[in-house]
Design a protein around this nucleic acid. Sequence first.
DNA 1: CGTTGCGTTGAATAAGGTCAAATAGAGTGG
DNA 2: CCACTCTATTTGACCTTATTCAACGCAACG
Lengths: 240, 240
Amino acid sequence: MDWQTHASISQRTANIDLQPPDVGPYGEGDEEMVQHRKISRGRYVFHAGDRFDGVYAIRTGSFLTEVGTESGQEQVTCFYFAGEVFGFDGMQDNLHRCSVRALEDSEIYMIPSSRVRDPMSQSPGLQRQLLRYMSEEIIRSHRLMVMLGSMRSEARLATFLLDLSRRMQARGYSPNEFVLRMSRGELASHLGLTVETVGRNFNRLQEWGLVDVVRKHVRLLDMERLSALVETGSGSASAT
Amino acid sequence: MDWQTHASISQRTANIDLQPPDVGPYGEGDEEMVQHRKISRGRYVFHAGDRFDGVYAIRTGSFLTEVGTESGQEQVTCFYFAGEVFGFDGMQDNLHRCSVRALEDSEIYMIPSSRVRDPMSQSPGLQRQLLRYMSEEIIRSHRLMVMLGSMRSEARLATFLLDLSRRMQARGYSPNEFVLRMSRGELASHLGLTVETVGRNFNRLQEWGLVDVVRKHVRLLDMERLSALVETGSGSASAT
DNA sequence: CGTTGCGTTGAATAAGGTCAAATAGAGTGG
DNA sequence: CCACTCTATTTGACCTTATTCAACGCAACG
């Protein structure tokens, strides 16, 4: 393991900051023991079954979590991007229940379990931030459940694109134009669809003039109608 | 609001205890400020949009959370039973994002946000317990996403029944025989299916000899094959 | 070039949804 | 206790949607 210890985390990349205009994930005081690590594309941060050592904050890059369906195949549950934090699933009983894989060459910090767990050894800032991130993850998964449960395929894809757009904007990037870091297969798994259906739906959204898709490059042309599609479930009908 | 203040929480009901054989949700020391409240069937603990005041531990009864799909209809995301804790979704920005409704006459404790958030004002026991519950909720929602994403209807129902069985057992009840607290409609919403499909699948599982269902009363006859159904997705084929 | 991994396209199929009607309980008042 | 009502649940016929399975296209790369 190529862990390094850093005295400061102030070197984190420019336009990437945490969503809440707050303290940052590491408190202000003692950053001595925060560890820093590079992960190259396709490599795992941890696997399901691994011991929980701490949670991870993404400095650059992006990741996905997959959960084994016990019948062999893995399903993608979440994506995480720079500035976000993952690994909370291991706190239940010191064992990770999902695997986390890098979608591209990335850099992360680990916040050791001792600092996560022991209220005395941590700054109030860190404590509050972690609770916020966990809460956010719970909210997001509730939303995803609604999506998977009651929406049809185009609406699922539209929801995903809008969520991505929001997160991109929060990170200081354009909300209208971005590059998908994941493959069609990973996306399909995440949305609970097949690759074919995802592809066909990209086509359909393009035909309707809502998006412009070239391979992994996506441009959102009509956020208005994209949102309407999510809410009403209606297709090409103009819902202004 | 019919809140009452109790000096002790030792009066909690007999065979209901927290899953981890641990300290209990309130630490050991200062229980002075833990508040106790009755909620009758159909009433809400809080609605989406309400201010976050704290998290809630269930003393008796059961609850469900619903999330609005912005197109009017609500979808059931989770069920909670005695001994479990809910309300973490509000910690993100002091606003609840889902509503929680009592499935039967129930009793809950509130743990105020001040005690949840401020690491200095709380016992280490409470702190660790809350993190555990949040972690558990994250794990559970990942499982649910897998279920909603990649399983077909019978497998979803089977998964739900097995999860329920596990939770019943954890609370000291029979894992093979229990009463569903929720309506078919609520269950269908939770599983991302229609009431008709849920009903038909109960029939199918009964025809296959896996369960015995009479209205809300459920008996699991063959956990073995029920699990196999989840894992393989195979139907009536004997998969021993 | 040929190969390999991804992504797209098309036709057939099956799973689940939709709609409408029948049935069964639970609650109410006589 | 019985009729009546209201709601929840079940059943059946039909239809929409997404999957399945197969073939094809297209870059990237040796």
